[in-house]
Design a protein around this nucleic acid. Structure first.
Lengths: 107, 107
DNA sequence: CAGGATCCAGTGCGATACTG
DNA sequence: CAGTATCGCACTGGATCCTG
């Protein structure tokens, strides 16, 4: 296991870098905060983040799934319905980014 | 005041993003960890991070100074001697990245 | 509606050479 | 020794189009 830098497939050993890597992405914090309030569908993210492109959102959702932070539930219906939610590991992430927020307030 | 995204000069309002932005950079965690053990000169960073280019190191040191995380002491001698150290704000950052590390260990 | 494919711009950072 | 300038490449993410 372990986290890998995407594309290059180079391994990250430092735990701090692994954690940082997982939350680094233009819309990841927004995604996590929104999921912390409740499960969401892609269109919800699009609605609440009109600045974000669909490409970036799906890309980052995919990475978060790979990293075990969130999970997908695909209802296999048509039109498509897929719901995202935090995994237990993702829920452990919330207090971590809250610590970040506390520090950020002092900047 | 406040943190700005470099180059674009767009303002970041979210405190979590501000904090994240400040520690995002390929060698910033390494720099901070090293400064936490004691003040350093540029050549020390180069020695302990042989993979890092001088360009990246000086660039990121500069950003950390701008963000008030570290400070320079320039001895104005020749050959040059400049020592970097954590500011009080930088010291507050240490426990924050330790929380990140704790989380990263579980990945 | 979810999300892949393609094209393109911005930017981070490595390598190297240079200056005071 | 600290720091800058230039070149070049790789990656992120925006815009748009396409499909089941």
């Amino acid at each position: 296991m372990g986290i890998y830098i995407r594309k290059t497939d180079k391994k990250i050993d430092c735990p701090m870098e692994k954690a940082l890597h997982v939350i680094t992405g233009k819309w990841k914090l927004a995604i996590l905060c929104e999921l912390n309030r409740g499960s969401c569908r892609l269109k919800d993210f699009e609605k609440h983040n009109p600045e974000a492109s669909k490409r970036a959102l799906t890309q980052q959702l995919k990475e978060l799934v790979i990293d075990g932070i969130i999970e997908k539930e695909d209802f296999n219906v048509y039109p498509k319905k897929v719901i995202y939610s935090l995994t237990p590991k993702g829920q452990e992430l919330i207090p971590v980014i809250e610590v970040l927020g506390k520090f950020g307030e002092k900047l």
